[in-house]
Design a protein around this nucleic acid. Structure first.
Lengths: 346, 346
DNA sequence: TTGAAAGCGCTAACAA
DNA sequence: TTGTTAGCGCTTTCAA
C-alpha cells in the first residue's frame, strides 16, 4: 500500500516528541506555551513529509468521527439530492464528512441504517427524513443523547429537533389557486404510507382550501399512491380521476414523483394541460419550469432547510442543549405557471 | 453520551476472552475450531448487550475503513445523483460506506477532496468523475497503489481503470438523426473546460457525423459554454445560433445542464421545438420524456456504470491486480422523441 | 517549554 | 479449543 507517515515519523525526524507534534496539529501550542519557532519547524516538517493524521486513530482516541449521516428515501430524487448538497456544504465548512444513505422508504432498512451509523460510532449525529410510523425508535435514540435532526417529516410529541416547511399552508395556497382559477372538481394524489407528516399536512391543506371555499370534500377525488408501485398506480388513479363519474378538472400532486408520473399519463392520454386538466404540484423541481406549459408548484427553501438542519445537529453534537432549537418551520412559495389554468378561464 | 459497550464488556459478562468474542465477530470460529455452542453463547450475549464494534478501533487496527469515496461535480445534478445511487447500492451490498463529495468542477477543490479522503485513511479507494486537466495527480496516486476508478471521464495514457460510455458514437448517432431528419445547419453547445474527455469525444462525434454526411463543419456553429456561468452564456449563444447569419435549424447539446438551459431560452423566445429548432441532447434525464415535445436524448447506462466502477474499485482494494480491469466502454442508446423533428419534414 | 506514558477498542500472532 | 498480549496512531494527563 501507500504512504504511511505517522506522527511518530514526524517527531523522530525532528528529534522531538509526538506530544509536541500533536500540540501543533491541534493548535494547542499557545495553551502550552510552545515557541513559535518550534511550532514552525514542526509545521514545515509536516508539510515536507506530507503527513496527515489518521482519522481512525484520532477518532478512536477522541471518540469523534468528524462525520454526520444523512438518511433519506433516495439520493436520486432531486428533492433529496438538493437537500444533500446543501447539507454537504455546511458540513464541509465545519470539517465534517457526510455519509448519505438511501432507505427507499423501507422502515426496517432505515432502522438498520440508523444503527449502522450510530452504534458503530461512524457518525456523530444523523439528519433524517424518516419513514418510521412513530417516534418510538428515533425518540429513544434521541433521549439516549444521540444527536438527531428530523428534516421534512416530524413527529408531534417527540421533542426531536426538526426542520420542516409549512406543508399545510403550502398545499392550501396551491389548491386555493386552482379554485381561484375556476376549477370545480379538484382531485389530489397523495402518497402512502399516510403517516408521513409532510404528506398528511398537505392533505390537510387540500381539505382546508376546499372547505374554506365552500366546496365539499369528495373522498373519491383523493387517491393514495403506494410508494413502491408509483408509476402504475398513478396511471390507474389519474385515469379514474379524469373519467366519469369523477371528471376532475384539476389535480393537486403531493410531491414531485407523483407529478412526474401524472404528467406522463396525461401526455399519453393526449390531454392538454391546463385546458383538459389543471395541475399543481408540491416540490418545485427544475423540470417544472421547462415543461410546456410550466407546472405551478409549491417551492420549498431547500438551501435553508439544509442549513438549519445542520446547525441544529451541530448544536446537539457540541452539547449546546440549553439553547434548544426545537422545531423550525419554514415557509413555502407558490410558483405560479401556466399549468394551473388562469382566472380568465370560463 | 450514549451506549459504550465494548468487546471487553461482552467478554467479561461471559467470562471469556476478548479474542473469543472477536473470533465470533469476524467469523473466524471455524478456522480456530471454536465450539458451535460457545459461539452461540457469544452471539446471544452480543445481541443481548446490543453490542456493535467500534469502527474507528477496528479501522485503526486493520487499516481498513470500510468506506469508499465518490467525487463528482455536484450531487444535485441528476446524472451524478443517479450514479451515486447506483454506487451506493453496490457498496452497501459489500459492506462499504460511501462518502460523496461535490467538487463543483473546481480542480483545486477536487485535489483537496482527494487528499482529504485518501491521506487520512477515511476511504479505501475513490471513484471520481475528475475535473483535472491531466493525469498527473491522479496517475501519481494510482501508481502509489491507492485504488482509483475514473468514471465518465478518462485520461488516454494513465492506465487508471476507467468506466465510460462511447461518447463519440453516442454523439454521432444523435447528430446523424438530425441529419436524417433533414436538418441543414446543426449547431452544438459544448462545455468548457474542453479537456474533459467525455465532452471532447462528443464534439468529435458531432464533427464526424457532419463529415460523413458531407456537411462542412462551421466553427461558428460550435459554442463553448463555461461551467460556472452556464445559464447566461447559454442564453447568449443560443440566441446567436438561431439568428442570422447563423440560423441554425437544430442544436445538439453536450449534456443535460446545457439542454435544460437551452430549452428555457427557446421557450422564452417563443420558438417551437422542433419546428423552429430541433434539439437532441446527451444524458437522458427524466425531464426529457416529460416535456412537450419530448427531447430526443443519448441515454447512458447509469446503473451499469456504477456497478462496473465499484467492481473495478473493489478489485483494486482486494489487490486482485493480475486480472486488471483496464477500461470499460459501455454503449449508449438514442432515445428518439419528437424534439429531433421527423423524416417527414420538408 | 517539552516529554513519557497510558489507553481509546479492536485484531491476530503466539501460547497454552 | 481458548487466552495473553502487543500494538495500530493518536491525544492528553502528568511530570520534569
Amino acid at each position: 500500500m501507500r504512504k504511511k507517515v505517522s506522527i511518530k515519523d514526524v517527531a523522530d525526524a525532528l528529534g522531538v516528541s509526538k506530544t509536541l507534534v500533536s500540540f501543533v496539529l491541534n493548535n494547542k501550542t499557545e495553551k502550552h506555551g510552545i515557541n513559535a519557532e518550534t511550532r514552525q519547524r514542526v509545521l514545515d516538517k509536516i508539510k515536507e513529509m506530507n503527513y496527515s493524521p489518521n482519522q481512525a486513530a484520532r477518532g478512536l482516541r477522541t471518540g469523534k468521527s468528524n462525520a454526520v449521516g444523512l438518511i433519506i428515501a433516495d439520493i436520486a430524487n432531486p428533492f433529496y439530492s438538493r437537500i444533500a448538497r446543501s447539507i454537504e456544504d455546511q458540513a464541509r465548512k465545519k470539517g465534517y464528512q457526510l455519509l448519505i444513505c438511501s432507505s427507499d422508504e423501507i422502515a426496517e432498512r432505515e432502522i438498520e441504517l440508523i444503527q449502522l451509523l450510530s452504534d458503530t460510532g461512524q457518525v456523530e449525529g444523523i439528519i433524517i427524513s424518516t419513514t418510521q410510523s412513530d417516534a418510538k425508535m428515533l425518540g429513544a435514540i434521541y433521549k439516549d443523547n444521540f444527536p438527531i435532526v428530523l428534516i421534512d417529516r416530524y413527529f408531534e410529541e417527540s421533542g426531536i429537533p426538526t426542520v420542516i416547511v409549512n406543508n399545510e399552508e403550502g398545499a392550501y395556497s396551491a389548491v386555493e389557486k386552482l379554485i381561484t382559477n375556476g376549477m370545480k372538481r379538484i382531485g389530489m394524489l397523495t402518497i402512502s404510507p399516510s403517516f408521513i407528516s409532510s404528506v398528511r399536512d398537505r392533505v390537510k391543506g387540500y381539505k382546508k382550501a376546499l372547505k374554506e371555499n365552500n366546496m365539499k370534500f369528495d373522498k373519491k377525488l383523493l387517491r393514495e399512491i403506494p410508494f413502491d408501485n408509483l408509476r402504475d398506480s398513478v396511471r390507474k388513479e389519474v385515469m379514474e380521476l379524469l373519467s366519469p363519474p369523477n371528471k376532475a378538472d384539476a389535480i393537486f400532486l403531493a410531491n414531485n414523483n407523483l407529478a412526474v408520473a401524472a404528467i406522463e399519463v396525461i401526455n399519453e392520454m393526449g390531454l392538454r394541460i391546463p385546458n383538459d386538466v389543471a395541475l399543481v404540484s408540491f416540490d418545485d423541481i427544475e423540470l417544472f419550469q421547462l415543461t410546456q406549459p410550466g407546472i405551478t408548484a409549491v417551492s420549498q427553501p431547500i438551501e435553508q432547510m439544509g442549513k438549519e438542519a445542520f446547525y441544529m445537529l451541530e448544536r446537539q453534537i457540541n452539547g449546546e442543549e440549553e439553547n434548544k432549537p426545537g422545531r423550525v418551520v419554514l415557509e413555502t412559495e407558490l410558483k405560479v405557471r401556466r399549468s394551473c389554468g388562469s382566472v380568465m378561464k370560463p
